[in-house]
Design a protein around this nucleic acid. Structure first.
Lengths: 137, 137
DNA sequence: AAGTTTTTGCAACATTATTGCAAAAAACTT
DNA sequence: AAGTTTTTTGCAATAATGTTGCAAAAACTT
């Protein structure tokens, strides 16, 4: 089993309080987190800038990935299964629950292929599905 | 054929300079536009607030729709074919070209269904495909 | 053309994000 | 374990982005 420190070390990052804490938040949460969520959950124990930089580093190292939103914010999610193996995150399906408002990363669902008009060469596709999640039925 | 004024009037909006001009930008552009693009293209002839409010009104009236992005911005796009008839915009496929960096709204492509884990009830789905567009091959 | 309604622009403010730099912490070396 | 190097943090300053109230201006109505 992996401690936060293990994950950080394995990905070539120095082990610091802020990184351990923020990683812990992701591991505890079952949904995606926005910058604001992290600020709230750490009670601003860390500087705003540190949070920005930590998130950026995590994305660069491939520990978390960004989820596109339509409300001028970025959601970040950690993928337990697949991302742990260090693969690409680009073909995930994300599910936004209209009931509990969580965004869930459906790791094991594959994005279906789509037929594009002539001339368009796709390389990656992302999908955002809205609806009611399994806990809110 | 439709002038900008016609479109505005048909959708129950007063006809003003800013609205005509911003609508013109969308009609001329073949990609999606961000708030910043509009500011740039109008050489800030209109107040920042007016642009925000105009975009908001256009979204409410269904003339344009928002495209989720991963970079803390919102892209707005006008859908020529389908949106003109006033239908829902939620199942569009959007294509981001890595070459010319444009975001194109593929009006006539239907988002394919996706098989979700048990308990998840989908209501809408959006898809963002990255790749090379037909003009950049 | 006068009255009514809607829209605009300004000002002020709030939120969110970025950069440089010195101090602090972590990692590394011996 | 102490000293050196490297990385990270936090502060300050700044920039960019978004929102609200309100009076003036413009657009609509008759």
């Amino acid at each position: 089993m992996d401690t936060q420190a293990d994950i950080l070390k394995r990905n070539g990052m120095s082990i610091t309080e802020s990184r351990k804490k923020i990683l812990e938040l992701f591991l505890e949460s079952d949904g995606a987190l926005a910058h604001a969520d992290i600020e709230r959950n750490t009670h601003t124990a860390f500087d705003r800038v540190t949070v920005y930089r930590t998130l950026q580093t995590f994305v660069e190292k491939g520990i978390i990935h960004q989820i596109p939103t339509t409300d001028n914010s970025i959601l970040y999610a950690l993928c337990r299964q697949s991302c742990a193996q260090g693969h690409h995150h680009d073909n995930h399906v994300h599910f936004i629950c209209t009931q509990c408002d969580r965004t869930i990363c459906l790791d094991d669902v594959t994005v279906p292929g789509v037929k594009l008009p002539g001339g368009f060469k796709p390389s990656q596709s992302a999908m955002v599905v809205t609806g009611v999640c399994k806990d809110c039925q």
